[in-house]
Amino acid sequence: MERLEPLNKLTLLLVDDHAIVRQGLRYYLNTQPDLQVVGEAANGQEAVELAKQLQPDVVLMDLIMPNMNGIEATGVLRELFPDMKVLVLTTFSDKDYVLAAIKAGAAGYLLKDADPERIAEAIRQAHRGLPQLDPAVAGQLMSHLAAPAKPDSSAPERLTEREKEVLGLIAQGCSNKEIAAALGITEKTVKTHVSSVLAKLGLADRTQAALYAVKHGFA
Score class of each variant (00 low, 15 high):
Lys85Cys: 06
Glu165Thr: 03
Leu63Gln: 08
Glu163Ala: 11
Gln53Lys: 14
Ala126Tyr: 03
Leu50Ser: 05
Ala122Phe: 01
Phe92Trp: 05
Leu145Asn: 09
Ala73Val: 08
His127Tyr: 13
Val37Arg: 00
Leu130Gly: 00
Pro116Met: 14
Thr91Leu: 15
Gln55Asp: 10
Ser143Cys: 10
Ala101Arg: 05
Phe92Asn: 10
Ala146Ile: 14
Ala107Phe: 05
Ser153Glu: 14
Gln55His: 13
Ala47Phe: 11
Gly139Val: 04
Gln32Trp: 00
Ile64Asp: 13
Leu169Ile: 06
Phe92Cys: 08
Ala106Tyr: 05
Leu80Asp: 06
Gln132His: 07
Val137Phe: 05
Leu141Glu: 08
Leu133Gly: 04
Ala171Trp: 04
Gly75Ile: 05
Leu50Asn: 04
Ala73Lys: 05
Pro151Trp: 08
Leu130Glu: 15
Gly139Thr: 09
Gln45Ala: 12
Lys52Pro: 01
Leu89Gln: 03
Val88Lys: 07
Ser143Tyr: 09
Val86Phe: 08
Val76Asn: 05
Asp113Leu: 02
Ala138Gly: 13
Ser93Glu: 14
Gln140Asp: 07
Lys112Gln: 12
Ala41Met: 09
Asp152Arg: 12
Lys150Ala: 14
Val76Arg: 15
Leu159Ser: 11
Gly75Met: 09
Gln125Glu: 13
Gln53Met: 13
Pro56Gln: 06
Asp113Phe: 04
Glu157Ile: 10
Ala73Phe: 12
Val38Pro: 02
Arg78Tyr: 03
Leu80Ser: 08
Ala120His: 00
Lys150Met: 13
Ala120Thr: 00
Ala42Trp: 05
Glu165Cys: 03
Ala73Tyr: 07
Pro156Ala: 07
Lys103Val: 04
Pro135Asn: 10
Ala149Asp: 11
Val59Leu: 05
Lys103Leu: 06
Glu163Trp: 04
Ser153Val: 13
Leu87Val: 05
Ile64Trp: 11
Val59Trp: 01
Val48Lys: 03
Tyr97Asn: 11
Thr160Pro: 14
Glu72Ala: 14
Leu80Cys: 06
Val137Ala: 02
Asp113Gln: 11
Val98Ala: 03
Gly129Cys: 08
